[in-house]
Amino acid sequence: MGARISLTSRELKKWIRNPVQLFITLIQPLFWILLFGSAFDITKLIPSNIPGGSSLIMNSFFMGAKNYISFLTPGMLAIMGLFSAMFSGMSIIWDRRFGYLSKLIVAPIPRDSIILSKVFSSMVKAIVQSSILLLIAILVPNGLVLSSSFNILDLLLLFLILSMLIMGFSSLFSVIVIRVKKMETLMAITNLLNLPLMFASTAMFPSAIMPSWLKNVVNYNPISWAANSMRVLVLQGSIQWSSIINDLFYLFIFDVIMIIIVFIVSKYGFEE
């Protein structure tokens, strides 16, 4: 366990000590909430004079969110998790470039610790970042309205869900980085994966407004699982197990599969 912990703390030390990176980490959620929250606010299209009032549509399409930012914030958390996972995985390529990886490979440490330290550290980073994002979302005008029954257990479960999402994706990207050694190729792959993962999910829009073929895709996207379950926690509070248990289970399976792949690839994958 020693190397896993010390390598994780190395990652976190590097993160805290890099003022620019830390600043971006803190400021980015603000941008995301303000820009996406304003640009994609489709609730503005709902006419206010329809029978039953706009709250009927908000209830049936937007899980009863009071406004778009309330709906968007849990999705933004998931997307932020995706990006955080991606960058942490990519940092393996820097370790390789700067020769540090060869030192790790020669050391008598479990191979998986090289990847798991990236995974664990990105989980910690994301929890810090998501707390800030939640706070900002609440503070902006016309911002996040939490369910009145939202409590600390909901918050902890939300962090857990986010961590599960990151564990899966961070593992996925790390495994890709181990096999793909060229920066340019890696960039192309991550760009190819990111946008579809982001938009073919329920992170920003309810699946109810999507065509049926897209709905099918969306339902298999881990981003959707995380976004949906975190949304239930934020908008309904007091842990509605029945509404989130399926998503949690899928995320769990996603993690288990990815971790198994990490162990296999790390065992044989570091060789040139």
């Binding site: 010390s6 030390k13 890099n18 060869s102 020669v106």
Partner: peptide, 30 residues
Amino acid sequence: RKMIGLVPQDLSVDDDLKGIENLELQASFY
């Protein structure tokens, strides 16, 4: 692995850590 030490061709110390931290991190591997 336990009984050998390697200093690779490319510099392999971590710039973002202090000198002593590099050594302590390496020690933790063993």
